[in-house]
Design a protein around this nucleic acid. Structure first.
Lengths: 196, 196
DNA sequence: TGTCTTTTGGAACGAACGCTCGAAAATAAA
DNA sequence: TTTATTTTCGAGCGTTCGTTCCAAAAGACA
């Protein structure tokens, strides 16, 4: 198959290690040396495999959303009353965001939120996609007759994503998991007012 | 008075310039050279006046909250039904966060949110203070009989701060001011459920 | 077996970082 | 006027940054 010397590492394993570093230190404070240490690879291997630091970050964030966004996504795609579905998705996120075995919070929310360059744009785009995902799910609920025909789908989607951001920040700031569940539960009334 | 050569610059003017840089580029990506350019001072003057980069940031953030948090604080301390007061404070923040003459969002929320060191802790502490401020205001409302005696003051305070974080993030991500007002208005139902 | 291609490890690149230093400048006190 | 103290300016300190280069290594093909 491949003609030259075979890779000695698994790309996804390396990305998992990179996720951990970016997640805990943020993009700007993560050096190539940090990534080399965490992955066990040399700088040459990293550059040969990914191209540049921003590309490593992009691949890492893509893998991050598929791995750590799964719980939220699955809850969101459950059937049932839309308000309860959204609240359940928030509760699922609360568990992810406050997982004691992780750096805390959401990597997409915090690892490059101040970065005005490409890294910041990578995460901003992922955040926009989450809002679209929620919006689409609400539209689906309206089509199914599970929400008011004149429901404010956009407003509800924005509310959910704003709360996700806020919950991530709170977790980063030392907030406990019960706090995140409190916030999730509190959303029900507003979502109900907007949608049903 | 002072014995040596007098300062040629105004400390608060310098901090205003520093705020702008930290706000738009974030703490980590802001270099001393950036601050020197923005303030018009040499590195020596900065270090002589403030001590180190983290100290400049700390002073800048302190000035930031007094200047740019004023609208929120004033609305919060208005008299009136607590839910309406909180919602009005959110709307006031929406105006600040989306001010087109600023870098957008809240500097305390985004300029060091990923930083695991002193800079991150400086902003985290400010964020905790906001929640305490909101909490205290709600307790006051309860004491005045303007909220249910068994109102969930902590939950409501957490909800408000989570929304502030989320609104800041949304503004940073290109969200428009109407979106922030939509989120602010949506909070009313949940705050009502928690407090009245 | 010998050639080709790719990966690996480590040294090293120029640039930028936070910060410091010494001399000149500017005022207050003696 | 002299002395003491502080600020300013700019060069430059050592370190770290993202990235590149090169030779050795290792399997695929001829």
């Amino acid at each position: 198959m491949g003609r030259g010397r075979p890779r000695e590492f698994d790309e996804e394993h390396a990305l998992d290690a990179a996720i951990g570093v970016f997640w805990s230190k943020g993009y700007d404070l993560t050096s190539i040396a940090d990534l080399a240490d965490a992955t066990g690879l040399g700088p040459s291997s990293l550059y040969n495999a990914f191209g540049c630091k921003e590309a490593i970050f992009e691949k890492a964030m893509e893998r991050y959303v598929t791995k750590y966004g799964r719980a939220f996504r699955e809850q969101l795609n459950e059937r049932g009353p839309i308000v309860e579905v959204l609240v359940a998705a928030l509760h699922a996120s609360a568990e992810s965001l406050a997982n004691p075995e992780s750096p805390g919070g959401c990597a997409v929310a915090c690892s490059a939120s101040a970065n005005p360059g490409a890294a910041g744009e990578i995460t901003a785009e992922k955040r926009r996609l989450v809002e679209e995902m929620v919006f689409t799910r609400i539209i689906q609920a309206i089509d199914r007759g599970e929400a008011r025909p004149d429901a404010d789908a956009r407003g509800a989607a924005m509310l959910v994503t704003a709360l996700l951001s806020g919950m991530s920040q709170k977790s980063r700031d030392g907030g406990m998991i019960e706090d995140l569940h409190t916030i999730s539960a509190a959303a029900e009334a507003s979502l109900g007012a907007l949608l049903s």
